[in-house]
């Protein structure tokens, strides 16, 4: 399938269009991060029956900008005994990991920065670079809390990568493709064509619907763990490790960590949207279906997933380390294997 990119159509394939394609997601991430920070503040306030920030702008909607200005003004501290180079490099490595994933995310039928055929595999492989940045920062800080946060982050990533991989692999088997754009094209039509409901197909697909729904939840839970969100935020758990791997960071470098976390949240939400929730397809067949509405649906779905992540953060308590390992290895892993087998059977019989 030919991947269409509207910028190439407009400007041809030259240095200008390539630069635009590379920087467009960055603009999106910047705006999105501000909105997500506001959402985090407001949703947490509403869940705890508070008003949240109210003073900057009407209903406090300018609060994220105030936060950013505050972070820029703060002193940039590098601890004396830290290993300077790695300490200063870590925030960039983390953000690189988060932003690299945007290369294959299909925002619309006519916009995907790079429509490679191995999109899903790539996005999954690149995901662990952020964990590497966490380890780098945690180790270079020369602080025991940072180091413990980093170690926890690695163990968590290694454990939860496998269920997430099985969930993605099941979709690859179901769609017989790793191209994210093609997976989107297959889910066109009503919402029961989404992979969440077994993908397109006749009534015989009914018996795999429980498995695909299960896989969606498995992927969502694993993605929470991969982005270090509650209930899996043990790498930074405030009550145990001060602030975990970013304890020593301040000012803009801390902001980079923060920023990367929100970018990562969007990446996993976007993957979930693409592989299970129909991506840029409208839920109602041809209703509001089209390239521009496509990006609307995509952002809407992905942002809803981000909101669920925020909602969970302010509702659930944190897991202990051993509980985290238990859930990863003894619950999610077997369930994902069973679902994978069921879906393979279905595809074989189809």
């Amino acid at each position: 399938m030919e991947n269409v990119n509207f910028l190439y159509e407009l400007f041809g394939k030259n240095i200008i269009s390539v630069t635009l394609i590379v920087s467009l997601p960055l603009v999106f991430v910047l705006i999105y991060a501000l909105i997500a920070i506001l959402a985090e503040l407001k949703v947490s306030a509403w869940i705890q029956e508070r008003l949240g920030p109210m003073r900057t702008g009407p209903w406090g909607i300018l609060q994220p900008i105030a936060e950013v200005v505050k972070l820029i003004q703060k002193e940039d501290i590098t601890p004396d005994k830290s290993s300077k180079l790695l300490y200063n490099l870590a925030p960039f490595v983390i953000f690189t990991g988060a932003y690299a994933a945007f290369a294959v995310i299909p925002f619309s039928e006519y916009f995907v920065p790079s429509g490679i055929n191995l999109g899903l595999f790539y996005v999954f492989a690149i995901g662990s670079i952020s964990a590497l940045g966490i380890v780098m920062g945690g180790w270079a800080s020369n602080n025991k809390y940072s180091l413990m946060g980093a170690m926890r982050s690695v163990s968590q990533l290694i454990s939860y990568e496998i269920p997430a991989a099985m969930a993605i692999l099941s979709v690859v088997v179901l769609a017989s493709s790793m191209n994210m754009q093609e997976i989107n094209h297959q889910q066109t039509g009503w919402f029961w064509n989404w992979n969440l409901f077994g993908g397109p197909g006749s009534w015989t697909k009914i018996w795999i619907i429980p498995f695909t729904v299960l896989l969606t939840f498995i992927y969502f839970i694993s993605s929470l763990a991969e982005t270090n969100r509650v209930p899996f935020d043990i790498p930074e758990g405030e009550s145990e490790l001060v602030a975990g791997f970013h304890t020593e960071y301040s000012g803009m470098k801390f902001a980079m960590f923060f920023f990367a976390e929100y970018a990562n949240m969007f990446v996993v939400a976007a993957i979930l949207t693409t592989i299970f929730l129909g991506g840029w397809n409208s839920p109602f067949d041809t209703f509001l279906q089209g390239p521009i509405w496509g990006s609307f649906w995509f952002v809407l779905k992905a942002f809803s997933v981000v909101l669920v992540q925020i909602w969970i953060r302010w509702t659930l308590p944190r897991y202990r380390v051993d509980q985290l390992m238990y859930v990863g290895w003894k619950v999610l892993l077997p369930l994902s294997f069973v679902s994978f087998l069921a879906i393979s059977f279905y595809v074989m019989l189809k």
Partner: peptide
């Protein structure tokens, strides 16, 4: 495919290597 496999396997591998490195260093 090979390139992505390279990233996938070796970043995971290096993470594990680093854990051993951490265990062996002053920190």
């Amino acid at each position: 495919f090979l390139a992505i496999t390279q990233i996938m396997i070796y970043i995971g591998g290096i993470l594990v290597l680093i854990i051993f490195g951490v265990m062996l260093t002053t920190h």
